[in-house]
Amino acid sequence: MILDNETTHQFAELALAALRKTGLAATPRNYELWYAHVEGKNPSLSAHIQKAMDSTGKVTQEKADQLYKKLVQHSDISNDVIDLMTRFHTEVTDLYDIVEQTGESAQGHSEKLSDMSDQLRDSTEKFPAVGALLEGVISVAKTMREENQYLEDRLAASIEEVNTLQRDVEAIQREAMQDALTGVANRATFDRSLEKHMSEAKENGEPLALVLGDIDHFKKFNDTWGHQTGDQVLRLVAEVMNANVKGMDMLARYGGEEFAVVLPGTTLENAHRLADKIRCAVESRRLRKRRTDEDLGVITMSMGVAQLHAPDTMETLIERADGCLYAAKSAGRNRVCDERELKTPDEESHQGVA
């Protein structure tokens, strides 16, 4: 008599539950032995199983193997069932091992497992006794494929979300480090950079120079042509200066119409030459009003250059570069002055210079 699906499912559940109580693993052989036991068609087998149990209802694997060899192994279907279950068990084990060890997608292996499942489904028509168990495992394989696809989709979505967040964070960091009007580094970034490069220069015994530059007569220009044109001047100066700053050099808007350039590994002489090159580049650019194309003339800059000395702090280096800048202003503007030309504090006065 061929059993209906519901009955085979019930027997399968009973067999697995009985195996669990006896403390045996649900291997193909143990499952076949206990399925035959709960099915009730072999009273001799059931009697031998009862005798094999100890006082707690447990059965050793050695006794189970003996019962299998004596009462089951010579049946017509036993070898086919063992082969069928073993092949399926090998496929599942290999799949899990590959996924666990490599972390790669299980999609290709799941497809192979699906083909194997179809073959096993055909085989179960010949062996109803193992049909219920195989149907359950096939169902698990299908669920695994579906969950794997879901996880892959979620992983792809998560990666894109992380990339978006990373781009947002980078944009926020850039905004925090840049001057909003000119796009060059802001004062806070300048302070951090100068402190870092000064420390490295002192530690490595390397030169470092600082250039401070100020747009000449900017307040008058701003009052005459308006703040929008003044902003245009600041952007133009930043663009020209940035084009002449290379490598580790760092350009920053120091404040208002004043800019700073940190020059690691640069001597005072080379820093002076670079400052003068920037000054000439700025002077060579004529400014035109955007709306009317009106010629607003040329822009000039005064620049001061200071060299790092061993006792220097950030404050003393900046103060010396600032003193050179105002010396350039006092000498007629549109020029570069370095600390070799700096007057003593008693001779120097910043009053009235703009």
Score class of each variant (00 low, 15 high):
Glu175Cys: 02
Glu175Leu: 10
Ala176Arg: 13
Met177Val: 14
Gln178Trp: 08
Gln178Lys: 13
Ala180Asp: 09
Leu181Lys: 02
Thr182Phe: 01
Thr182Ala: 03
Thr182Ile: 07
Gly183Phe: 09
Gly183His: 00
Gly183Lys: 05
Gly183Gln: 05
Gly183Asn: 00
Val184Glu: 06
Ala185Glu: 02
Ala188Met: 15
Phe190Ile: 00
Phe190Gln: 06
Arg192Lys: 15
Arg192Gln: 13
Glu195Arg: 15
Glu195Ala: 15
Glu195Met: 14
Glu195Gln: 14
Lys196Asp: 09
Lys196Leu: 15
Lys196Gly: 04
His197Phe: 15
Ser199Arg: 14
Glu200Arg: 15
Glu200Gly: 05
Glu200His: 15
Ala201Asp: 08
Lys202Val: 00
Glu203Met: 11
Gly205Cys: 11
Gly205Gln: 08
Glu206Arg: 11
Glu206Gln: 12
Glu206Asp: 14
Pro207Arg: 02
Ala209Phe: 06
Leu210Val: 12
Val211Trp: 13
Leu212Val: 12
Leu212Lys: 03
Gly213Asn: 01
Asp214Gln: 09
Asp214Ala: 01
Ile215Asp: 06
His217Met: 05
Phe218Cys: 05
Lys219Gln: 14
Lys219Tyr: 10
Lys219His: 11
Lys220Ala: 12
Phe221Ser: 00
Phe221Asp: 01
Phe221Cys: 02
Asp223Phe: 02
Asp223Met: 03
Thr224Ser: 11
Thr224Cys: 08
Thr224Asn: 09
Thr224Asp: 08
Trp225Pro: 02
Trp225Val: 01
Trp225Cys: 05
Trp225Asn: 03
His227Phe: 03
Gln228Asn: 11
Gln228Trp: 13
Gln228Pro: 15
Thr229Asn: 13
Gly230Lys: 12
Gly230Leu: 06
Asp231Cys: 01
Gln232Lys: 13
Val233Phe: 06
Leu234Tyr: 06
Leu236Ala: 02
Val237Met: 07
Val237Pro: 04
Met241Asp: 13
Asn242Leu: 09
Asn242Gln: 11
Ala243Pro: 03
Lys246Phe: 14
Gly247Gln: 04
Gly247Cys: 07
Asp249Leu: 04
Asp249Trp: 05
Met250Gly: 08
Met250Trp: 07
Met250Arg: 09
Leu251His: 04
Tyr254Met: 05
Tyr254Ile: 07
Gly255Cys: 09
Glu257Ser: 02
Phe259Glu: 02
Ala260Trp: 03
Val261Trp: 03
Val261Tyr: 04
Val261Phe: 05
Val262Ala: 05
Leu263Thr: 01
Pro264Leu: 10
Pro264Phe: 02
Thr266Asn: 07
Glu269Val: 13
Asn270Leu: 06
Ala271Val: 04
Ala271Glu: 12
Arg273Ile: 10
Arg273His: 15
Arg273Trp: 10
Leu274Arg: 06
Leu274Asp: 11
Ala275Asn: 08
Asp276Phe: 05
Asp276Trp: 03
Lys277Tyr: 06
Ile278Asp: 08
Ile278Val: 14
Arg279Asn: 08
Arg279Lys: 01
Arg279Glu: 10
Ala281Val: 03
Ala281Gly: 07
Glu283His: 14
Glu283Trp: 11
Ser284Trp: 07
Ser284Val: 12
Arg285Ala: 08
Arg285Thr: 13
Arg285Gly: 03
Arg286Leu: 04
Leu287Val: 07
Leu287Asn: 10
Leu287Thr: 08
Lys289Cys: 09
Arg290Glu: 09
Arg290Ser: 04
Arg290Tyr: 00
Arg291Glu: 12
Arg291Met: 10
Asp293Met: 00
Glu294Asn: 08
Glu294Arg: 04
Glu294Phe: 10
